[in-house]
Every structure is written in C-alpha cells, then in structure tokens.
Amino acid sequence: MFQETFLFHVFKKLEQGFGAVIELGKLTQTPTPHIDSVYACVKLLAKTLGEEKGKLKIEKLI
C-alpha cells in the first residue's frame, strides 16, 4: 500500500515538473522534443501501472 501511494506521488511530481517545463517552452516558443518524449513515457507508465494495478520493481544487476 505504501509503495503504491509513494509511486503515485512520485509520478505526480514528475508529471508536474515536466508539464511546467513543457509549458514554459510553449510560452517562449522553444521546442522541447526530448522532454515531450520523456513526459509521454512517464505518463504512459503511470497510466498503465494504475490501470493494471501493477508494480515497478528495480533490481540490482550483478
């Protein structure tokens, strides 16, 4: 439960940060293609994890 809530907040903060940078880019007519791509990936990952009630697991490589 804690992990799901924490992950939700992390994705929300990332979404807000990327959204702010993208909006500033639009206001100043500065293209942000890389940030747009990363934002789309983060948004899709958050949506998929939420819909599928999935988890994100990070493991160390040995």
Rank of each mutant, 00 (worst) to 15 (best):
L27G: 06
F11N: 13
H34R: 04
K12V: 12
A20D: 09
K60V: 07
F6E: 08
I58R: 13
I35S: 04
I62M: 01
L7H: 04
V38E: 09
E4Q: 10
F18E: 03
L7A: 04
A20S: 05
K60D: 07
L14A: 04
M1V: 03
T5I: 08
A40K: 15
Y39S: 08
F11M: 13
T5C: 02
L7D: 00
H9L: 07
L27V: 08
A20H: 10
Y39D: 05
G50H: 14
F11K: 07
T28A: 09
M1I: 04
V21D: 07
E23A: 09
K57H: 02
V21T: 13
S37D: 12
G17N: 09
Q29A: 11
K12N: 07
F8L: 01
Q29T: 03
A20G: 02
P31C: 03
G25T: 04
P33T: 09
Q16Y: 10
G54A: 13
E59R: 12
G25N: 07
A40D: 12
P31Y: 05
I62D: 11
K53T: 03
Y39I: 01
L14S: 01
A46H: 14
E15D: 15
K60L: 12
V10A: 05
A46Y: 05
V42Y: 00
Y39F: 15
V42E: 03
I58D: 09
A40W: 01
K43H: 15
E15M: 11
Q3M: 10
T5L: 14
K57I: 15
F18K: 02
G54N: 08
L61F: 13
G17K: 03
T32F: 08
T5Q: 06
V21I: 10
C41L: 12
E15P: 01
K60G: 11
L27I: 12
H9W: 09
K12Y: 11
P33E: 11
K13C: 08
L56Y: 13
T30W: 05
E52G: 02
F8M: 02
A46T: 06
G50F: 01
T32N: 05
Q29K: 13
T30Y: 09
F8C: 00
I62A: 11
V21N: 07
G50E: 05
E59H: 12
G17R: 06
Q16K: 15
L49N: 06
Q29G: 02
T5R: 02
G50W: 02
K47H: 15
A40Q: 15
E15I: 10
E59Q: 08
D36L: 03
G19N: 01
Q16R: 15
K13D: 14
T48V: 07
G17Y: 05
F8P: 00
G25A: 07
L27P: 02
T48D: 07
A46I: 09
L49G: 03
T28F: 08
F2C: 01
G17V: 04
K47C: 11
V10Q: 08
E23V: 06
K55I: 15
G54S: 12
K12W: 05
I35H: 00
L56D: 10
G54C: 08
L44H: 08
G50N: 14
A46W: 04
E51R: 14
G17F: 03
A20R: 12
L14M: 14
V21A: 13
